[in-house]
Amino acid sequence: MAGVFISYRRDDSAGFAGALERELVTRLGRDRVFMDIKDIEGGTEFPTAIDQALKSSDVVIVLIGSRWLDATDAQGIRRLEKPGDFVRREVEFALAGRARVIPLLLDGTLLPAVEKLPIDLQPLRKRQTLELRNSHWDEDIARLLNHIREAMFALNIQETAEKIIGEGFNPNPPSSVQVNSLFYLGLALGVIFVVTGVVTGIESFRHQLPWYFALIFGGAGLLMCAGGALPFALRDRRRRMTKRLLKDGRPILTTFHRVEENTTIEVNGRHPFYVTTLWRNPVSHDLVQFRSPALWADPTAKASDRMITVMIDPDNLHHYVMDLSFLYHADPAIRRL
């Protein structure tokens, strides 16, 4: 499946098109770049092959050189005015489809004025243009690749979202009651110690007694308060991030990788478990790992061999939430820390 379609007029920008195609193939792979002269097999019906390639493309790059607008046929008729012109058909098809259309202006060429374009091509004026100059080749190629990768990533995430988000999506199963109780106990003890420290301090001042008892009680109380309050603060931060991701994030399907057990932590004889999943970035091909919050029962039997939804921030893959609702519904003993 082609990810990038290169649209060009041969007597206008064939040299640029060939050089650009080689650059993109080197960076994206042969199967992700379509150029008519190389990717249409002999005997294939040309219009059909072009239409199929456009349908499967995420990005259409329209190369616009000095002759793109005013090129004429043997009768002197401007080619863009003819409905059967292949370049016109390609751009019309792309503007009406799902792909991101990028007008690429070659060596200082200006984007044609709207009144000089056929009506069906006039939306091209609203698309963000980029430049490709011989004098700044590497810089312009790098900028173009950034736009291509961003477009391919966004389209992949959007299509995945349409398939996997359901009404039952719930990335935050209820928390463990026992673990919550420990946090509340620590917070309550901290408050008691702080109050004791304050009272001891007042009495020490009134009766000129040693002050270090007040300092000990007060310091211990502050540490207990911090220890009890910190998990709630972190949980509140996670809830706010989850709320933001549910509103603005994008869901992806990840593959179960393994369950990790942290034996260094123990609460009431139980250790926390973590579900880890893997996902292949469709653009960079990097393998990304996601890790769930702590769970207080082994979820291996329920989580293995399945796809798990993760809501991500496309701009920062370190911000995500994993949908573990299927675990909670299957086994209420599995609860998030």
Rank of each mutant, 00 (worst) to 15 (best):
S204W: 04
Y328R: 15
G43A: 09
N170M: 10
Y212G: 00
V4C: 07
D298W: 05
R239V: 06
L132G: 10
G3K: 13
K243C: 01
I252P: 00
D120L: 11
K247C: 01
I141A: 09
Q52G: 05
L222Y: 09
G43K: 09
F183N: 14
L106Q: 04
S284Q: 02
V195I: 15
T48Q: 08
R238V: 00
I61E: 04
T277G: 04
G186F: 14
I148E: 10
H285Q: 12
R237P: 00
F5S: 10
M35R: 14
E266K: 14
D248Y: 14
D12N: 12
I157N: 02
E90I: 11
I119A: 14
T129L: 09
G97C: 05
S66L: 10
D12S: 15
R32T: 03
D11L: 13
D36M: 04
E131V: 06
V275T: 03
L327V: 04
D248T: 12
T48L: 04
H318L: 05
T276V: 09
Y184P: 00
V198P: 02
L295S: 05
R78S: 02
T160R: 07
I164S: 06
A71N: 03
F5I: 13
R291I: 08
S135Y: 03
G65I: 09
T276H: 08
K163D: 02
R67H: 14
E159D: 09
P83W: 05
L110N: 12
A94R: 06
I164F: 08
I64S: 13
L189R: 03
L234Y: 10
V288P: 01
R240L: 11
Y328S: 11
P112C: 10
T72C: 03
D70C: 00
R149T: 08
W211D: 01
I164E: 06
L223G: 06
V25C: 12
M35D: 00
V62M: 14
D248P: 01
K302E: 02
L69V: 12
I40Y: 05
E21L: 03
S13R: 06
K243Y: 03
R89D: 03
R239L: 11
D85H: 05
L63K: 13
N268K: 08
W279D: 10
C225V: 15
L132A: 09
V101C: 15
F290D: 01
H329D: 13
R89F: 04
T160N: 05
Q178E: 14
F217A: 14
D305Y: 00
P83Y: 05
F5C: 11
Q158V: 02
V198A: 13
F273P: 01
L222I: 15
L185Y: 07
R280F: 01
R79C: 04
D51S: 10
A99T: 03
I61W: 06
I216D: 00
W68M: 07
F232P: 02
V199G: 01
K302S: 01
T276D: 07
E167L: 12
D286P: 00
G186A: 10
E131D: 13
V179E: 15
F205M: 05
R79A: 01
F213W: 09
E21Q: 10
G84F: 02
Q208N: 11
S176C: 14
